[in-house]
């Protein structure tokens, strides 16, 4: 359905914006390494089923792209461009996010198996893993516009999944309460950012009017 496709495209675009930003500016300034490392953990734990379940070529290619690109970004940040910029302000206590997600996955899962717990863990971790990035954005104050476009596209992807889940509930009688709960939490975390982003875009637009 349309929401799902739009969500996936938004996710893809967010990563392309990020890669483009880093390669063009040759700096990873303003990007939270912690958030990017958490994304590697999210994708690897979520997409373990690549090895066991085949859904579609599209699905497999997207999963491989998200795992590979997240590892690549971390490599860019830690190896290629790390000498040019040192992030002192990226100090969000990530252990609470990982610990909290782990606890949530132990409390909420469909089956008490290794892969099901990891799948649930990846949902909760994805919901909160933007927090170090938002924290960094707040600390550095003035953000580059491109960084905010990246965060916006990234947040939009999960927000678009919500109407997709409504649609699937009515058309397929399918309701995944775990995904929906974590997705709602994720979109709530982004909501403040969305508001500020919306205000700024509108404001700039207003200023540029002849």
């Amino acid at each position: 359905n349309l929401f799902r496709i739009a969500g996936d495209i938004s996710h893809l675009v967010s990563i392309l914006i990020l890669l483009q930003t880093i390669e063009k500016g040759k700096t990873t300034s303003g990007i939270s390494l912690k958030t990017q490392i958490l994304y590697v953990v999210v994708f690897v734990t979520r997409y373990l089923d690549l090895l066991t379940t085949y859904v579609s070529l599209y699905n497999s290619l997207m999963k491989i792209f998200f795992i590979a690109s997240s590892v690549y970004v971390v490599w860019l940040m830690t190896s290629k461009y790390n000498k040019k910029f040192k992030e002192d302000q990226d100090v969000f206590p990530v252990k609470y996010l990982v610990g909290g997600s782990f606890v949530m996955s132990l409390l909420f899962h469909y089956k008490f198996t290794f892969s099901e717990i990891l799948w649930s863990f990846s949902l909760w971790l994805e919901a909160v893993c933007i927090l170090p990035q938002l924290f960094l954005l707040q600390k550095t104050g003035e953000a580059k516009a491109i960084t905010t476009h990246y965060i916006f596209a990234l947040g939009l992807y999960r927000a678009l999944y919500i109407p997709n889940w409504f649609y699937r509930y009515y058309s397929e009688n399918r309701l995944d309460l775990l995904s929906v709960s974590a997705g709602l939490l994720q979109t709530t975390i982004y909501s403040d950012f969305f508001y500020v982003y919306y205000q700024k875009v509108l404001k700039n637009w207003g200023f540029n009017l002849p």
């Binding site: 998200f66 999944y161 997709n164 009688n173 399918r174 309701l175 995904s179």
Partner: peptide, 10 residues
């Protein structure tokens, strides 16, 4: 209805 999860998603 079919299965509950949406694991065919990303």
């Amino acid at each position: 209805g079919g299965g509950k999860t949406v694991k065919d998603e990303l």
